[in-house]
Design a protein around this nucleic acid. Sequence first.
DNA 1: GGCAAAATTGTAAGCGCTTACACTCTTCTT
DNA 2: AAGAAGAGTGTAAGCGCTTACAATTTTGCC
Lengths: 342, 342
Amino acid sequence: MVKSQRVTIQDVAVLSGLSICTVSRALRKLPNVSENAQAKVSDAAAKLGYKPSSAASRLAGGSTGSIAIVAPTATAWFFAQAVEAAEEVFGDSGFDTVLVSLRGRPSVKQKVFGDLLGLSQRVDGVLLLNVDLSESEIALLAASGLAVASVGMTSVPWDNVGIDDRHAAWQATSHLLELGHWDLAVLSGRETQENSVLTAGDRLKGFGQALKDHHLTVDPDLVVTSNSTIDGGRKAMNELIAHRSLPTAVFADCDEAAFGALMAMREHGMSAPKNVSIIGIDDHPMSWFLGLSTVAQPVADQGAFAANLLVDRLQNADALNEPSNHFLDTKLIERKTTRRQR
Amino acid sequence: MVKSQRVTIQDVAVLSGLSICTVSRALRKLPNVSENAQAKVSDAAAKLGYKPSSAASRLAGGSTGSIAIVAPTATAWFFAQAVEAAEEVFGDSGFDTVLVSLRGRPSVKQKVFGDLLGLSQRVDGVLLLNVDLSESEIALLAASGLAVASVGMTSVPWDNVGIDDRHAAWQATSHLLELGHWDLAVLSGRETQENSVLTAGDRLKGFGQALKDHHLTVDPDLVVTSNSTIDGGRKAMNELIAHRSLPTAVFADCDEAAFGALMAMREHGMSAPKNVSIIGIDDHPMSWFLGLSTVAQPVADQGAFAANLLVDRLQNADALNEPSNHFLDTKLIERKTTRRQR
DNA sequence: GGCAAAATTGTAAGCGCTTACACTCTTCTT
DNA sequence: AAGAAGAGTGTAAGCGCTTACAATTTTGCC
């Protein structure tokens, strides 16, 4: 069954009584192969347990059968989720998944251009998750010949899927406003090169828009910038409590920051929604646990969707349709950290 | 700088004025290359920005330059952490990381033997994270010619690193006992084929050992089996509260189960440590947030350590030392969910 | 029925690298 | 000082696959 000696295309050719060339074409389901030949080849291949050598295939100009996923990190909930979903799609489509975690190093560029354009020899395509790329980097990638797709990126010349961050923030903020809150603070993620939280800006805009829709204006003193982490949220909330005025409600632009805020409150003997209402964005599994109101975004779906788009491009290289940009729906989930302001 | 035309070994050979063969050897730092030649080659390669083609290398019998990480899932905190740590080590050593997530499918075997032994053509080595393998599968893998290392597996014929699960459970349980608790329940992870919680059995033993050391015996009615998830822990705790007797302290064999237990208590108007003391194992980032007492295990370290072991094997194929088994230290972290029983 | 066009299949030349093996030079031996 | 042993280098034969292009068979049509 499991042969120690490699089964090559040659063996299949001999068994099926056809030439290597025909076998190669049949295996890849190229046109100009008779049904007869096709059948013979499939049979022979199955009987022999033939598996093409990706190395040979690649070397000869074919595909590598693998796709790279590039993410800022693999540990954060969002990315772990998206990576796994994408990996599943790739696996099911017969691709190996090569994981590249940037880990917030300064060598992002080097990774992308040293390895990634170096990667172009090893993978057929790249799935970018929230990677912060410069104009020129985008251009280079687009010209690399690699199939590219992304999650959570905007104005890129390839398929992208994400959520409407402005809208999500608007939803969260509007919820607060509709509960009668008008004194709002926002915990806004920093837009850094390193951590590539590309979404923070849009979310802040959505917050502003919601206020505007209710004829309110943003109080700059209640916009506190923080890292999109538990600790970042905690520090930001402490800042708010200690050095600024306490609003009646807080919009954290991601759930992890909201957790931190919750924690900071607890440290000051306060709790939500008793003293302050709090809402986040994400619907992290812990949010349910903590009763955090939030705007849910489909994470695995985004990864899977983008992965499918990429696989489609790879498999139907002929259909050269325009790059598409998809927005998945977000949904307000009201739990226990927000309540009506009396 | 970035050439569109591939730089091959041939180019390096020409520039350095040596033959392809010598270049190949110099590049791989094989013996029988003069320092002079070595220097010329390095220079030329650097000047040209030469990167070997892994496909060609592989095809010609060399290495693929990539390593597979096989894990039951990539999303769980433990695995995400370990995967990232290992990926970093591999990346730094010049290897690509191929991620294979089993996702608890019934096709584990197929993955491992269809793909993985299929993978043997695509990777140089495999890092197994807590994968539940049968005897014969282990044997096959060991005979595959692939370099193998693992995290959290026992009695395998390759390098392994993990924690002493019995001891960790013993530490957690002893903590409870020393606080004066003698009426203990345990939330024990199920040992399933699918989820491959290989550690549950050992942890249960450690629990029993601690009791024994204090001249107590395990009450079967207070051993409740659950999935190692938040929801699993919640259900288990509910079971305890609703249908069995309530102990004064609970040892959950992982932090996530402890979270669920905490939640179940809250649903019944109880809290830790007021009504029941609770301790877990892991030191999940949320544990700090929730004040959960626990036994910390170094997760990233385990991944990195095992990854290094694997890379060493690959790079020093000559040093054929025995497979080693390493246990990393675990540490009791006392927080707020455990207190002295009066 | 005969010939061009279309469909199918085969031939052979690589892809970029590794590696046995052959070949030069250097060093040691004795 | 001559031959053996070794160090350093080059030659050439693949690894298993893809792909022009050539060869062959089939089909369609006047």
